[in-house]
């Protein structure tokens, strides 16, 4: 029986591969696939998917090997970045509630 965290990791992997296999090289996200992923999967966390320049910038930041695609390792950086932002937000929220 997988744990909560294992299930979460599994679902991140599935999401990545679902979008990565849409067009072109499967196993990596093209700019369009990244935008679709952000639009459909991160609509509450991010607003920048609506801004083409912001998508370009995120793409550029993630694409550390400069091949114009986002591979899984590079996608993990996005997840890490969002998690850190989410953690800080959560802490602020707890502070506000007076739990910390």
């Amino acid at each position: 029986m997988p744990s909560e965290l294992e299930t979460a990791m599994e679902s991140l992997i599935k999401v990545f591969h679902r979008y990565a296999s849409k067009e072109g090289r499967s196993g990596t996200l093209s700019r369009r696939e990244l935008r679709e992923l952000m639009e459909n999967e991160l609509s509450n966390f991010l607003r920048s998917q609506k801004d083409p320049a912001a998508v370009d910038k995120i793409m550029k930041d993630l694409d550390t090997n400069g091949d114009g695609q986002v591979d899984f390792e590079e996608f993990v950086s996005l997840v890490v970045g969002l998690s850190i932002a989410c953690e800080q937000c959560y802490k602020m929220h707890l502070k506000k509630m007076g739990n910390m």
Partner: peptide, 14 residues
């Protein structure tokens, strides 16, 4: 995907 990220965060915090 957002709920998966929340799980990463809340697992550590708890």
């Amino acid at each position: 995907m957002e709920s998966a990220i929340k799980t990463l965060v809340t697992t550590f915090i708890s």
